[in-house]
Design a protein around this nucleic acid. Structure first.
Length: 500
RNA sequence: CGGGGCGUGGCGCAGCUGGUAGCGCGCGUGCUUUGGGAGCAUGAGGUCGCACGUUCGAAUCGUGUCGCCCCGACCA
Protein backbone atom coordinates (compact mmCIF):
# COMPACT_ATOMS: atom_id res chain seq x y z
CA UNK A 1 0.00 0.00 0.00
CA UNK A 2 1.22 3.52 -0.57
CA UNK A 3 2.91 5.43 2.19
CA UNK A 4 0.37 8.17 2.74
CA UNK A 5 -1.73 5.77 4.76
CA UNK A 6 -1.31 5.98 8.47
CA UNK A 7 0.42 8.68 10.45
CA UNK A 8 3.98 9.61 11.42
CA UNK A 9 5.12 7.67 14.46
CA UNK A 10 5.60 9.42 17.79
CA UNK A 11 9.19 8.36 17.86
CA UNK A 12 9.98 9.66 14.39
CA UNK A 13 8.53 13.10 15.04
CA UNK A 14 6.18 13.75 17.91
CA UNK A 15 4.99 17.06 16.58
CA UNK A 16 4.22 15.65 13.15
CA UNK A 17 2.50 12.69 14.75
CA UNK A 18 0.20 15.07 16.57
CA UNK A 19 -0.67 17.07 13.48
CA UNK A 20 -1.18 13.96 11.36
CA UNK A 21 -3.44 12.50 13.97
CA UNK A 22 -5.64 15.56 14.29
CA UNK A 23 -6.03 15.85 10.53
CA UNK A 24 -6.38 12.17 9.65
CA UNK A 25 -8.62 11.25 12.56
CA UNK A 26 -11.02 13.87 11.18
CA UNK A 27 -10.90 15.97 14.31
CA UNK A 28 -10.01 19.27 12.68
CA UNK A 29 -8.63 20.91 9.58
CA UNK A 30 -6.71 24.06 8.82
CA UNK A 31 -8.81 26.99 7.66
CA UNK A 32 -8.27 29.86 5.28
CA UNK A 33 -7.37 32.09 8.21
CA UNK A 34 -3.95 31.73 9.77
CA UNK A 35 -4.09 30.13 13.17
CA UNK A 36 -7.78 29.32 12.99
CA UNK A 37 -9.07 25.79 12.61
CA UNK A 38 -12.18 24.10 11.39
CA UNK A 39 -13.43 21.63 13.97
CA UNK A 40 -14.80 18.72 11.99
CA UNK A 41 -17.87 16.71 13.03
CA UNK A 42 -15.89 13.98 14.77
CA UNK A 43 -13.85 16.52 16.73
CA UNK A 44 -16.92 18.56 17.51
CA UNK A 45 -18.78 15.49 18.74
CA UNK A 46 -15.96 15.00 21.22
CA UNK A 47 -16.21 18.62 22.29
CA UNK A 48 -19.98 18.32 22.72
CA UNK A 49 -19.51 15.34 25.04
CA UNK A 50 -16.95 17.32 27.01
CA UNK A 51 -19.30 20.27 27.21
CA UNK A 52 -22.18 18.15 28.41
CA UNK A 53 -20.18 16.56 31.23
CA UNK A 54 -18.65 19.86 32.33
CA UNK A 55 -21.93 21.72 32.08
CA UNK A 56 -23.60 19.14 34.31
CA UNK A 57 -20.83 19.62 36.86
CA UNK A 58 -21.20 23.40 36.79
CA UNK A 59 -24.96 23.11 37.26
CA UNK A 60 -24.48 20.60 40.06
CA UNK A 61 -22.28 23.11 41.88
CA UNK A 62 -24.88 25.85 41.61
CA UNK A 63 -23.95 27.70 38.44
CA UNK A 64 -26.17 28.93 35.63
CA UNK A 65 -25.34 29.79 32.03
CA UNK A 66 -25.65 33.16 30.35
CA UNK A 67 -24.15 34.86 27.32
CA UNK A 68 -22.19 38.10 27.06
CA UNK A 69 -21.16 39.93 23.88
CA UNK A 70 -18.25 39.11 21.60
CA UNK A 71 -17.12 42.74 21.45
CA UNK A 72 -15.51 44.71 24.23
CA UNK A 73 -15.12 48.50 24.11
CA UNK A 74 -11.42 49.35 24.19
CA UNK A 75 -11.86 51.44 27.32
CA UNK A 76 -13.09 48.40 29.27
CA UNK A 77 -9.85 46.58 28.71
CA UNK A 78 -7.93 49.59 29.95
CA UNK A 79 -9.54 49.48 33.39
CA UNK A 80 -7.52 46.77 35.07
CA UNK A 81 -3.81 47.51 34.71
CA UNK A 82 -2.40 43.98 34.82
CA UNK A 83 -5.18 42.70 32.64
CA UNK A 84 -4.36 45.21 29.88
CA UNK A 85 -0.71 44.34 30.17
CA UNK A 86 -1.49 40.65 29.77
CA UNK A 87 -3.82 40.79 26.79
CA UNK A 88 -3.24 44.00 24.85
CA UNK A 89 -0.61 42.55 22.55
CA UNK A 90 -2.80 39.75 21.26
CA UNK A 91 -6.12 41.40 20.51
CA UNK A 92 -8.11 41.57 17.29
CA UNK A 93 -9.53 45.08 16.91
CA UNK A 94 -12.67 46.15 15.06
CA UNK A 95 -12.28 49.65 13.67
CA UNK A 96 -15.08 49.98 11.09
CA UNK A 97 -18.66 48.84 10.73
CA UNK A 98 -19.05 48.96 6.96
CA UNK A 99 -17.24 48.16 3.72
CA UNK A 100 -17.44 49.95 0.42
CA UNK A 101 -16.24 49.39 -3.10
CA UNK A 102 -12.62 50.35 -3.52
CA UNK A 103 -12.50 53.53 -5.65
CA UNK A 104 -9.72 51.93 -7.72
CA UNK A 105 -12.22 49.29 -8.75
CA UNK A 106 -10.74 46.28 -7.03
CA UNK A 107 -12.71 44.70 -4.20
CA UNK A 108 -13.80 46.22 -0.93
CA UNK A 109 -12.23 48.53 1.63
CA UNK A 110 -13.40 49.70 5.07
CA UNK A 111 -15.57 52.74 4.54
CA UNK A 112 -13.67 55.70 6.04
CA UNK A 113 -17.03 57.24 6.89
CA UNK A 114 -17.86 54.20 8.99
CA UNK A 115 -14.96 54.38 11.41
CA UNK A 116 -15.96 53.58 14.98
CA UNK A 117 -15.63 56.30 17.62
CA UNK A 118 -14.18 53.74 19.99
CA UNK A 119 -12.65 50.53 18.71
CA UNK A 120 -14.20 47.23 19.70
CA UNK A 121 -11.97 44.42 20.83
CA UNK A 122 -12.87 40.85 20.01
CA UNK A 123 -12.87 39.31 23.49
CA UNK A 124 -9.70 37.51 24.50
CA UNK A 125 -11.58 36.71 27.74
CA UNK A 126 -14.69 38.33 29.15
CA UNK A 127 -13.85 39.63 32.61
CA UNK A 128 -14.23 43.25 31.57
CA UNK A 129 -17.60 43.11 29.79
CA UNK A 130 -18.93 40.86 32.49
CA UNK A 131 -17.77 43.06 35.35
CA UNK A 132 -19.22 46.08 33.65
CA UNK A 133 -22.53 44.23 33.68
CA UNK A 134 -22.22 42.80 37.19
CA UNK A 135 -21.77 46.30 38.54
CA UNK A 136 -25.32 47.02 37.44
CA UNK A 137 -26.69 43.77 38.80
CA UNK A 138 -25.13 43.78 42.22
CA UNK A 139 -26.53 46.14 44.88
CA UNK A 140 -26.92 44.11 48.05
CA UNK A 141 -25.42 41.12 49.82
CA UNK A 142 -28.72 39.49 48.84
CA UNK A 143 -27.57 39.55 45.20
CA UNK A 144 -24.59 37.41 46.12
CA UNK A 145 -23.14 35.03 45.31
CA UNK A 146 -23.57 35.45 41.58
CA UNK A 147 -22.53 32.20 39.89
CA UNK A 148 -22.52 32.45 36.09
CA UNK A 149 -20.84 30.50 33.34
CA UNK A 150 -20.77 31.11 29.62
CA UNK A 151 -19.86 28.92 26.66
CA UNK A 152 -18.20 31.06 24.05
CA UNK A 153 -15.45 31.59 21.55
CA UNK A 154 -12.57 33.93 22.22
CA UNK A 155 -9.72 35.29 20.11
CA UNK A 156 -6.09 35.66 21.11
CA UNK A 157 -3.80 36.68 18.29
CA UNK A 158 -1.03 34.22 19.05
CA UNK A 159 2.25 34.41 17.21
CA UNK A 160 2.44 30.72 16.77
CA UNK A 161 -0.49 28.35 16.76
CA UNK A 162 -1.12 24.61 16.90
CA UNK A 163 -4.31 22.69 16.22
CA UNK A 164 -6.37 22.54 19.43
CA UNK A 165 -3.41 23.40 21.68
CA UNK A 166 -3.15 27.03 20.75
CA UNK A 167 -5.41 28.48 18.07
CA UNK A 168 -6.12 32.14 17.40
CA UNK A 169 -9.79 31.50 18.01
CA UNK A 170 -10.87 28.83 20.44
CA UNK A 171 -14.00 27.56 22.12
CA UNK A 172 -14.21 27.48 25.88
CA UNK A 173 -16.32 28.07 28.93
CA UNK A 174 -15.59 30.90 31.29
CA UNK A 175 -17.14 31.09 34.71
CA UNK A 176 -17.36 34.46 36.44
CA UNK A 177 -18.55 34.65 39.99
CA UNK A 178 -19.05 37.38 42.60
CA UNK A 179 -18.95 36.87 46.35
CA UNK A 180 -19.33 38.85 49.55
CA UNK A 181 -16.13 37.64 51.18
CA UNK A 182 -12.62 36.55 50.37
CA UNK A 183 -13.30 33.16 51.96
CA UNK A 184 -16.35 32.50 49.80
CA UNK A 185 -14.48 33.37 46.64
CA UNK A 186 -11.62 31.16 47.72
CA UNK A 187 -14.01 28.30 48.31
CA UNK A 188 -15.52 28.83 44.87
CA UNK A 189 -12.16 28.79 43.10
CA UNK A 190 -11.27 25.56 44.87
CA UNK A 191 -14.67 23.96 44.25
CA UNK A 192 -14.22 24.45 40.54
CA UNK A 193 -10.69 23.11 40.69
CA UNK A 194 -11.60 20.05 42.74
CA UNK A 195 -15.21 19.22 41.97
CA UNK A 196 -15.24 20.14 38.31
CA UNK A 197 -11.89 20.38 36.56
CA UNK A 198 -9.94 17.69 38.36
CA UNK A 199 -12.90 15.32 38.33
CA UNK A 200 -13.50 15.94 34.67
CA UNK A 201 -9.87 15.43 33.69
CA UNK A 202 -9.42 12.28 35.71
CA UNK A 203 -12.84 10.64 35.57
CA UNK A 204 -13.89 11.63 32.04
CA UNK A 205 -10.69 12.26 30.12
CA UNK A 206 -8.81 9.59 32.08
CA UNK A 207 -5.94 12.06 32.37
CA UNK A 208 -4.28 12.31 35.78
CA UNK A 209 -3.61 15.95 36.61
CA UNK A 210 -1.49 17.85 39.04
CA UNK A 211 -3.55 20.27 41.09
CA UNK A 212 -1.69 23.29 42.20
CA UNK A 213 -1.27 27.00 42.53
CA UNK A 214 0.68 29.09 40.03
CA UNK A 215 3.77 31.06 40.87
CA UNK A 216 3.50 34.83 40.50
CA UNK A 217 5.08 34.70 37.03
CA UNK A 218 2.38 32.35 35.78
CA UNK A 219 -0.60 33.95 37.51
CA UNK A 220 -3.47 35.20 35.35
CA UNK A 221 -3.21 38.93 34.60
CA UNK A 222 -5.49 40.61 37.09
CA UNK A 223 -5.80 37.68 39.49
CA UNK A 224 -4.83 37.52 43.14
CA UNK A 225 -3.81 33.92 42.62
CA UNK A 226 -4.39 31.17 40.09
CA UNK A 227 -5.11 27.48 40.63
CA UNK A 228 -4.52 25.06 37.81
CA UNK A 229 -4.57 21.49 36.64
CA UNK A 230 -1.54 20.35 34.68
CA UNK A 231 -1.30 17.22 32.54
CA UNK A 232 1.72 15.34 31.23
CA UNK A 233 2.08 14.52 27.52
CA UNK A 234 3.76 11.48 26.03
CA UNK A 235 6.74 13.58 25.01
CA UNK A 236 7.16 14.48 28.67
CA UNK A 237 6.04 18.06 28.49
CA UNK A 238 3.28 19.57 30.52
CA UNK A 239 0.03 21.17 29.38
CA UNK A 240 -1.98 23.59 31.44
CA UNK A 241 -5.38 21.98 31.09
CA UNK A 242 -7.50 24.36 33.13
CA UNK A 243 -7.28 27.35 35.45
CA UNK A 244 -9.38 28.73 38.28
CA UNK A 245 -8.55 32.24 39.39
CA UNK A 246 -9.26 34.05 42.62
CA UNK A 247 -9.47 37.62 41.36
CA UNK A 248 -9.67 39.24 44.77
CA UNK A 249 -11.24 42.69 44.53
CA UNK A 250 -9.20 43.74 41.50
CA UNK A 251 -12.03 43.76 38.98
CA UNK A 252 -14.60 44.99 41.48
CA UNK A 253 -12.40 48.00 42.16
CA UNK A 254 -11.69 48.56 38.46
CA UNK A 255 -15.41 48.48 37.65
CA UNK A 256 -16.79 49.88 40.88
CA UNK A 257 -18.72 46.77 41.84
CA UNK A 258 -19.92 47.43 45.38
CA UNK A 259 -22.69 46.04 47.52
CA UNK A 260 -24.32 46.96 50.78
CA UNK A 261 -23.54 44.28 53.31
CA UNK A 262 -25.69 43.17 56.23
CA UNK A 263 -23.96 45.72 58.44
CA UNK A 264 -25.09 48.49 56.05
CA UNK A 265 -21.58 49.31 54.85
CA UNK A 266 -20.49 49.52 51.22
CA UNK A 267 -17.99 46.84 50.19
CA UNK A 268 -16.28 45.69 47.05
CA UNK A 269 -17.14 42.14 45.96
CA UNK A 270 -14.64 39.33 45.60
CA UNK A 271 -14.48 37.53 42.31
CA UNK A 272 -13.37 34.36 40.61
CA UNK A 273 -13.03 33.34 37.00
CA UNK A 274 -12.23 29.93 35.59
CA UNK A 275 -12.01 28.27 32.22
CA UNK A 276 -11.23 25.24 30.14
CA UNK A 277 -11.08 25.19 26.38
CA UNK A 278 -10.84 23.08 23.26
CA UNK A 279 -7.24 22.70 24.36
CA UNK A 280 -8.59 19.81 26.41
CA UNK A 281 -8.94 17.91 23.14
CA UNK A 282 -5.25 18.40 22.44
CA UNK A 283 -4.48 17.34 25.99
CA UNK A 284 -6.52 14.19 25.60
CA UNK A 285 -4.80 13.30 22.32
CA UNK A 286 -1.34 13.82 23.76
CA UNK A 287 -2.12 11.81 26.87
CA UNK A 288 -3.43 8.59 25.36
CA UNK A 289 -3.10 8.26 21.63
CA UNK A 290 -0.68 6.01 19.79
CA UNK A 291 0.86 5.46 16.36
CA UNK A 292 -2.38 3.99 15.03
CA UNK A 293 -4.28 7.16 15.89
CA UNK A 294 -6.61 8.49 18.54
CA UNK A 295 -7.21 6.58 21.75
CA UNK A 296 -10.37 7.99 23.25
CA UNK A 297 -11.62 7.30 26.77
CA UNK A 298 -14.98 5.51 26.47
CA UNK A 299 -16.86 8.19 28.40
CA UNK A 300 -15.96 10.80 25.78
CA UNK A 301 -15.81 8.66 22.64
CA UNK A 302 -18.30 9.89 20.04
CA UNK A 303 -18.57 6.26 18.93
CA UNK A 304 -17.95 3.77 21.74
CA UNK A 305 -18.47 0.52 19.89
CA UNK A 306 -18.17 -0.08 16.18
CA UNK A 307 -19.61 -3.19 14.61
CA UNK A 308 -18.09 -4.41 11.36
CA UNK A 309 -20.29 -6.89 9.52
CA UNK A 310 -18.61 -9.14 6.95
CA UNK A 311 -20.07 -10.79 3.91
CA UNK A 312 -18.97 -11.42 0.36
CA UNK A 313 -22.43 -12.00 -1.06
CA UNK A 314 -25.89 -10.55 -0.55
CA UNK A 315 -27.14 -13.59 1.29
CA UNK A 316 -24.33 -13.50 3.84
CA UNK A 317 -24.64 -9.78 4.23
CA UNK A 318 -28.34 -10.06 4.90
CA UNK A 319 -27.42 -12.33 7.77
CA UNK A 320 -24.49 -10.38 9.24
CA UNK A 321 -26.24 -7.02 8.82
CA UNK A 322 -29.31 -8.30 10.64
CA UNK A 323 -27.20 -9.70 13.46
CA UNK A 324 -25.24 -6.42 13.64
CA UNK A 325 -28.36 -4.28 13.75
CA UNK A 326 -29.80 -6.47 16.45
CA UNK A 327 -26.63 -6.22 18.51
CA UNK A 328 -26.48 -2.45 17.97
CA UNK A 329 -30.05 -2.10 19.19
CA UNK A 330 -29.22 -3.99 22.36
CA UNK A 331 -26.12 -1.88 22.97
CA UNK A 332 -28.13 1.31 22.50
CA UNK A 333 -30.53 0.14 25.17
CA UNK A 334 -27.55 0.02 27.50
CA UNK A 335 -26.75 3.63 26.61
CA UNK A 336 -23.75 2.78 24.44
CA UNK A 337 -22.98 4.95 21.41
CA UNK A 338 -22.70 2.38 18.65
CA UNK A 339 -22.10 2.47 14.91
CA UNK A 340 -22.59 -0.32 12.39
CA UNK A 341 -20.22 0.16 9.48
CA UNK A 342 -22.15 -1.22 6.55
CA UNK A 343 -20.09 0.35 3.81
CA UNK A 344 -19.83 -2.28 1.09
CA UNK A 345 -16.95 -0.92 -0.90
CA UNK A 346 -14.48 -0.90 1.98
CA UNK A 347 -12.79 -4.09 3.11
CA UNK A 348 -12.90 -5.16 6.75
CA UNK A 349 -9.19 -4.39 7.10
CA UNK A 350 -9.78 -0.87 5.87
CA UNK A 351 -12.55 -0.40 8.40
CA UNK A 352 -10.41 -1.65 11.27
CA UNK A 353 -7.77 0.93 10.52
CA UNK A 354 -10.35 3.62 9.87
CA UNK A 355 -12.00 3.26 13.27
CA UNK A 356 -8.76 2.72 15.12
CA UNK A 357 -7.49 6.00 13.71
CA UNK A 358 -10.65 7.67 15.03
CA UNK A 359 -10.30 6.23 18.50
CA UNK A 360 -13.31 3.94 18.86
CA UNK A 361 -12.67 1.99 22.10
CA UNK A 362 -14.25 -1.33 21.09
CA UNK A 363 -14.71 -3.13 17.78
CA UNK A 364 -16.90 -6.14 17.17
CA UNK A 365 -16.57 -8.24 14.04
CA UNK A 366 -19.67 -9.99 12.78
CA UNK A 367 -18.87 -12.58 10.13
CA UNK A 368 -20.65 -15.76 9.04
CA UNK A 369 -18.04 -17.93 10.74
CA UNK A 370 -18.60 -16.09 14.01
CA UNK A 371 -22.35 -16.40 13.80
CA UNK A 372 -21.92 -20.13 13.10
CA UNK A 373 -19.61 -20.56 16.06
CA UNK A 374 -21.76 -18.41 18.32
CA UNK A 375 -18.96 -16.07 19.39
CA UNK A 376 -17.89 -12.66 18.09
CA UNK A 377 -14.34 -11.28 18.08
CA UNK A 378 -14.24 -8.23 20.36
CA UNK A 379 -11.19 -5.94 20.12
CA UNK A 380 -9.94 -3.25 22.47
CA UNK A 381 -8.50 -0.09 20.99
CA UNK A 382 -6.27 0.69 23.96
CA UNK A 383 -4.44 -2.63 24.25
CA UNK A 384 -5.13 -4.19 20.87
CA UNK A 385 -6.39 -7.35 22.58
CA UNK A 386 -8.88 -9.36 20.60
CA UNK A 387 -10.89 -12.23 22.01
CA UNK A 388 -14.05 -14.10 21.06
CA UNK A 389 -17.09 -13.44 23.24
CA UNK A 390 -20.20 -15.65 23.26
CA UNK A 391 -23.05 -13.99 21.37
CA UNK A 392 -25.32 -13.69 24.37
CA UNK A 393 -22.53 -12.15 26.46
CA UNK A 394 -21.36 -9.51 24.02
CA UNK A 395 -23.58 -6.71 25.29
CA UNK A 396 -22.57 -7.28 28.88
CA UNK A 397 -18.93 -7.50 27.86
CA UNK A 398 -19.16 -4.15 26.09
CA UNK A 399 -20.71 -2.53 29.14
CA UNK A 400 -17.84 -3.88 31.25
CA UNK A 401 -15.24 -2.86 28.70
CA UNK A 402 -16.37 0.74 28.80
CA UNK A 403 -15.40 0.80 32.46
CA UNK A 404 -12.29 -1.34 32.10
CA UNK A 405 -10.82 0.69 29.25
CA UNK A 406 -11.59 3.98 30.95
CA UNK A 407 -9.68 2.74 34.00
CA UNK A 408 -6.88 1.10 32.03
CA UNK A 409 -5.91 4.21 30.11
CA UNK A 410 -6.05 6.28 33.28
CA UNK A 411 -3.79 3.79 35.05
CA UNK A 412 -1.39 3.75 32.14
CA UNK A 413 -1.19 7.54 32.05
CA UNK A 414 -0.69 7.69 35.80
CA UNK A 415 2.06 5.07 35.73
CA UNK A 416 3.74 7.02 32.94
CA UNK A 417 3.58 10.22 34.94
CA UNK A 418 5.06 8.53 37.97
CA UNK A 419 7.84 7.10 35.85
CA UNK A 420 8.52 10.60 34.53
CA UNK A 421 8.62 12.30 37.92
CA UNK A 422 11.84 12.74 39.82
CA UNK A 423 13.37 14.80 42.57
CA UNK A 424 16.50 16.74 41.84
CA UNK A 425 18.72 18.51 44.36
CA UNK A 426 21.68 19.94 42.48
CA UNK A 427 21.81 22.56 39.78
CA UNK A 428 24.01 20.37 37.57
CA UNK A 429 21.49 17.57 37.66
CA UNK A 430 18.64 20.01 37.10
CA UNK A 431 20.29 21.63 34.11
CA UNK A 432 21.22 18.35 32.48
CA UNK A 433 17.69 17.01 33.01
CA UNK A 434 16.34 19.79 30.83
CA UNK A 435 19.20 19.83 28.33
CA UNK A 436 18.25 18.90 24.79
CA UNK A 437 15.13 19.41 22.79
CA UNK A 438 12.44 17.23 24.29
CA UNK A 439 10.48 17.32 27.49
CA UNK A 440 11.99 16.02 30.69
CA UNK A 441 8.93 15.04 32.66
CA UNK A 442 8.23 16.50 36.07
CA UNK A 443 11.24 17.65 38.01
CA UNK A 444 10.37 18.26 41.65
CA UNK A 445 12.85 20.64 43.18
CA UNK A 446 13.35 23.36 45.75
CA UNK A 447 12.97 27.01 44.81
CA UNK A 448 13.57 30.14 46.86
CA UNK A 449 10.13 31.53 46.04
CA UNK A 450 11.23 34.59 44.05
CA UNK A 451 10.05 35.48 40.54
CA UNK A 452 13.64 36.49 39.70
CA UNK A 453 14.99 33.02 40.37
CA UNK A 454 12.17 31.42 38.41
CA UNK A 455 12.98 33.68 35.47
CA UNK A 456 16.68 32.84 35.53
CA UNK A 457 15.87 29.13 35.64
CA UNK A 458 13.49 29.54 32.71
CA UNK A 459 16.07 31.46 30.69
CA UNK A 460 18.72 28.82 31.26
CA UNK A 461 16.69 25.65 30.90
CA UNK A 462 13.34 26.55 29.27
CA UNK A 463 11.72 24.89 32.27
CA UNK A 464 9.10 26.80 34.22
CA UNK A 465 7.29 26.18 37.45
CA UNK A 466 4.15 24.44 36.33
CA UNK A 467 2.64 24.61 39.79
CA UNK A 468 3.10 24.40 43.49
CA UNK A 469 1.07 21.25 44.23
CA UNK A 470 -1.84 21.67 46.63
CA UNK A 471 -1.15 18.24 48.03
CA UNK A 472 2.47 17.09 47.85
CA UNK A 473 3.24 14.34 45.34
CA UNK A 474 5.23 12.80 48.15
CA UNK A 475 5.21 13.80 51.85
CA UNK A 476 8.94 14.50 51.64
CA UNK A 477 8.22 17.31 49.18
CA UNK A 478 7.13 19.48 52.10
CA UNK A 479 10.39 19.09 53.98
CA UNK A 480 12.27 22.41 53.77
CA UNK A 481 15.47 22.55 51.75
CA UNK A 482 17.53 24.95 49.68
CA UNK A 483 16.86 26.46 46.27
CA UNK A 484 18.23 24.49 43.36
CA UNK A 485 19.73 27.65 41.83
CA UNK A 486 20.48 30.14 44.59
CA UNK A 487 20.93 27.87 47.63
CA UNK A 488 18.58 30.14 49.58
CA UNK A 489 16.05 28.56 51.95
CA UNK A 490 13.00 26.86 50.42
CA UNK A 491 9.94 25.78 52.37
CA UNK A 492 8.91 23.07 49.92
CA UNK A 493 9.50 21.53 46.52
CA UNK A 494 7.67 22.76 43.42
CA UNK A 495 7.14 21.15 40.02
CA UNK A 496 9.29 22.22 37.08
CA UNK A 497 8.71 21.13 33.47
CA UNK A 498 8.85 22.29 29.91
CA UNK A 499 5.38 23.43 28.95
CA UNK A 500 3.22 23.45 25.84
C1' C B 1 9.48 39.15 14.37
C1' G B 2 14.15 35.79 13.30
C1' G B 3 15.54 30.87 11.02
C1' G B 4 14.00 26.73 7.76
C1' G B 5 10.64 24.54 4.22
C1' C B 6 6.72 24.58 0.77
C1' G B 7 2.93 26.61 -2.88
C1' U B 8 1.62 22.07 -9.70
C1' G B 9 -6.08 18.07 -10.36
C1' G B 10 -9.55 16.72 -3.79
C1' C B 11 -4.79 14.75 -1.11
C1' G B 12 0.55 13.41 -1.48
C1' C B 13 4.25 14.33 -5.00
C1' A B 14 7.39 14.34 -9.83
C1' G B 15 8.61 17.55 -13.84
C1' C B 16 12.26 23.08 -13.33
C1' U B 17 19.74 21.85 -18.68
C1' G B 18 12.58 26.56 -21.38
C1' G B 19 8.71 23.71 -26.39
C1' U B 20 2.00 25.07 -23.17
C1' A B 21 1.89 18.78 -17.51
C1' G B 22 2.67 13.44 -15.33
C1' C B 23 2.48 9.61 -11.26
C1' G B 24 0.24 7.42 -6.76
C1' C B 25 -3.98 7.79 -3.70
C1' G B 26 -8.89 9.48 -3.91
C1' C B 27 -13.37 10.21 -7.13
C1' G B 28 -17.31 8.20 -11.30
C1' U B 29 -18.78 3.68 -14.07
C1' G B 30 -18.50 -1.78 -14.91
C1' C B 31 -17.03 -6.60 -13.52
C1' U B 32 -14.60 -9.64 -9.96
C1' U B 33 -13.98 -9.06 -4.66
C1' U B 34 -14.69 -8.32 1.22
C1' G B 35 -11.67 -12.17 8.23
C1' G B 36 -5.95 -6.31 8.88
C1' G B 37 -5.88 -0.29 4.42
C1' A B 38 -8.91 -5.46 -2.57
C1' G B 39 -7.95 -6.23 -8.17
C1' C B 40 -8.66 -5.28 -13.27
C1' A B 41 -10.79 -2.21 -16.97
C1' U B 42 -12.53 2.46 -18.12
C1' G B 43 -13.63 7.68 -17.29
C1' A B 44 -13.73 12.68 -15.22
C1' G B 45 -10.63 16.32 -13.13
C1' G B 46 -5.18 21.02 -13.37
C1' U B 47 -2.95 24.95 -16.92
C1' C B 48 1.37 24.86 -12.48
C1' G B 49 -0.13 30.82 -5.53
C1' C B 50 -0.15 35.93 -7.71
C1' A B 51 2.16 40.06 -10.55
C1' C B 52 5.65 41.94 -13.67
C1' G B 53 9.82 40.89 -16.73
C1' U B 54 13.24 37.95 -20.29
C1' U B 55 11.92 34.93 -24.70
C1' C B 56 9.10 33.22 -30.94
C1' G B 57 7.57 30.28 -26.63
C1' A B 58 7.69 30.08 -19.18
C1' A B 59 5.39 25.25 -14.30
C1' U B 60 10.60 25.65 -15.69
C1' C B 61 14.82 31.61 -16.01
C1' G B 62 14.80 36.77 -13.27
C1' U B 63 12.53 40.38 -9.94
C1' G B 64 8.79 41.33 -6.69
C1' U B 65 4.67 39.89 -3.87
C1' C B 66 1.10 36.93 -1.17
C1' G B 67 0.04 32.69 1.60
C1' C B 68 0.74 28.31 4.46
C1' C B 69 3.55 24.77 7.46
C1' C B 70 7.74 23.68 10.82
C1' C B 71 11.56 25.50 14.56
C1' G B 72 12.43 29.72 18.10
C1' A B 73 10.87 34.42 20.93
C1' C B 74 5.33 35.19 23.25
C1' C B 75 1.05 32.73 25.14
C1' A B 76 -4.49 28.99 27.66
Amino acid sequence: MSSNLGITSREANYSEWYNDLVLKADLADYSAVRGCMVIKPHGYALWELMQRALDDMFKATGHVNAYFPLFIPRSFLEREAEHVEGFAKECAVVTHHRLKANPNGTGLIPDPEAKLEEELIVRPTSETVIWNTYTKWIQSYRDLPLLINQWANVVRWEMRTRLFLRTAEFLWQEGHTAHATYEEAEEEALTILNECYTKFAEEWMAVPVLKGIKSKNETFPGADHTYCIEALTQDKRVIQAGTSHHLGQNFAKAFGTQFVDKDNTLKYVYATSWGVSTRLIGTLIMAHSDDKGLVCPPKLAPVQVVIVPMGRDDETRLRTFAASDDLAAQLKLKGIRVKVDKREKESPGFKYNYWELRGVPVRIEVGPRDLDSGALPVSRRDSGEKAPVALDEVVERCVDLMVEIQQAIYDKALAFREACTRRVDTWEEFESAFAGEGGAGLIVAHWDGTPETEQIIADRTKATIRCIPLTPLDPSDEVPGVCILTGKPSSRRVVFAKAY
